[in-house]
Amino acid sequence: MLHRYLIAEILKLRRSLALMLCVAAPGCVALLGTIIAFDKKAPVNLAAFVMTGPGIWSFVMLPLAITALSVLMAQMEHGSRNWNHLLTLPGARPHVFLAKAIVMLGLVAAMSVLLFLFLLGGAALLSLLHPLGVTGHPDYAALAIRLGLMALSCTLVSMLQLWVALANRSFVVPLVFGIAGTFIGIGTFGATKAAWFPWLLAAGMLSPRPEIQQLGWMLGGIGGAAVMAAMLLHLSRREA
């Protein structure tokens, strides 16, 4: 049965704002980095260029994109009271919410892949068109691994955000939750225990310290799985 719910969730995304967001968010980051690089009055170091993208991505754009994505996915159901239909269909209730969670994680992973591809495209554009030329050799393998670990480490935030969005009919609650988490993360970055803060786990992948990176993807991954289980338990038992 789960596969049917997964197919339905994927088909719902056709022409949806959620899908547009998944292209626009990484696109904006890559575009911003490329424009800034074009504006430089010196040859562009491509190794540095491809690493500025993950910085903006992990601190600001990824948590905000997850916030918006969770709201858009949940509002698809809340908006027209689709729960009244979905939850009366035969099939285990947890499948409804599990399919949504899996698709959400898939979209976050897809955004990371797109960011990688857009940065690749940006580097190619700079190589071809920058008037002063380019220097350096970007480590694309390291970039791919870093973006992959960021996607894994934000599983916790994704599930927290999705839970809040699905549990509240109003979009304001998850929006405030996500924006507050993002800005508290920015404000507390550098504090001794900041590496444990869910909204900073992805940014931890930029740390030169391996233990911080490990904490990020382990806490993000395992914590995300635990929160997902709790969310399924709560939402499946709830009255519609």
């Binding site: 049917r4 197919i7 056709r14 022409r15 949806s16 009271r81 239909h85 979905l86």
Partner: peptide, 21 residues
Amino acid sequence: ETPSTYDHLTGRQNLDLTRIL
């Protein structure tokens, strides 16, 4: 209560979702 629909999809696509489920 109200007809539960996905407004960004066509009528046929809306029905298709339930058909798949």
